[in-house]
Design a protein around this nucleic acid. Structure first.
Lengths: 192, 192
DNA sequence: GTCTATAATTGGATAGAC
DNA sequence: GTCTATCCAATTATAGAC
């Protein structure tokens, strides 16, 4: 039973704030209050706010990318993989009491205010997701379990925009329940 | 040739900042610099930042709602109406040199940081758009020019999430061109 | 309606003791 | 690694002169 180290608790708190409020509404003071250490101590772990955001994206991209890669590589039908991929986003939304968006969705919306390193990582996250999604769609077309007009890449761009953008939109009305309805509707549209 | 009044110039500048950077990165100082008046003078027109944001949403909802209503009421096929509706979003994205999201998309992402009046107006904007979109889809189903699984309302929720959320997502990679590809892909999916 | 001046708070960040 | 103390800039907002 090891205690969670401070660096991790800072990252956890910062991520939670970003998922709910966005990076521009997240402050060292918020983190200080939540973690129970002084603002100056946070600077020991992350010299600047940009550094903190950058580390946070790297961690999240690794975590989420791993989950997606598991789904892509699994021995499952393409529709089932697609359903599970959508489930990852819905699961994020259902974390905790308030709807939480993907950190990279919030940061994507705030892209113009990010440092260049963080912005680059966000772009990479989006590209990686579209690529993995395209592999699922290509499998579905090959095994005739999915049917859609256009290329897997183009359809992947559509689905990723719907999922990543939809997380932000559904928090305004309907929340996770609405998100579920939308993803099911989408799966019906590309179903064979 | 009447000069644009200060109130309007403040609203224009604030809206532009929100579309590019978000409400939490927009400040009275930014507006002061762009409009060429002092910060204190802005408070004469809008007592608080919340008031400014609220007025800005009201104005935009009226403007955009009018454009949508024109499309909905026009004597056009449903696919053509849908294409023009998507065109409104793409047009916003193409305003100016940088990609600009719908102000209500940015504010929707930042919903948890808004005052309750502004948050209510954003919810209303989203609901109104879904309703009008559902009317287009219902027309398309009736005249057999569109074909989709599920109700017009459910499909409207999907399409609105794709458009409003997609505006934020495509700015990360691809921009307006990517947005166009996505909307065309979507229209192909619901095409008859 | 706009200005100067200023308040009051919060933001990110640093220096140096422990 | 955390603390106190402090700095400096930015933020929203108000008071009162012009």
């Amino acid at each position: 039973m090891e205690a969670i180290d401070t660096r991790t608790r800072i990252l956890d708190t910062a991520q939670d704030l970003i998922q709910r409020l966005g990076a521009n509404a997240m402050s060292y003071q918020h983190i200080s209050d939540a973690v129970g250490i002084r603002k100056a101590s946070i600077h020991h772990h992350f010299a600047s706010k940009d550094d903190l955001i950058e580390a946070l994206i790297r961690r999240y991209a690794g975590y989420f990318g791993g989950l997606v890669e598991e789904i892509v590589k699994a021995d499952l039908s393409a529709p089932e993989k697609l359903r599970r991929y959508c489930g990852l986003f819905e699961g994020t939304l259902r974390q905790g009491s308030h709807d939480r968006a993907c950190p990279c969705a919030m940061l994507g919306a705030e892209l113009a205010t990010l440092g260049s390193a963080a912005a680059g990582l966000i772009r990479e996250f989006y590209r990686d997701n579209e690529k993995r999604l395209a592999r699922i769609l290509a499998q579905g077309r090959q095994e005739r379990s999915l049917s859609f007009a256009g290329s897997p890449a183009a359809t992947a761009a559509l689905i990723f925009a719907l999922l990543e953008g939809g997380m932000l939109v559904v928090r305004v009305n309907g929340g996770a329940k609405q998100f579920r309805a939308i993803t099911e509707q989408m799966i019906a549209l590309v179903g064979s």
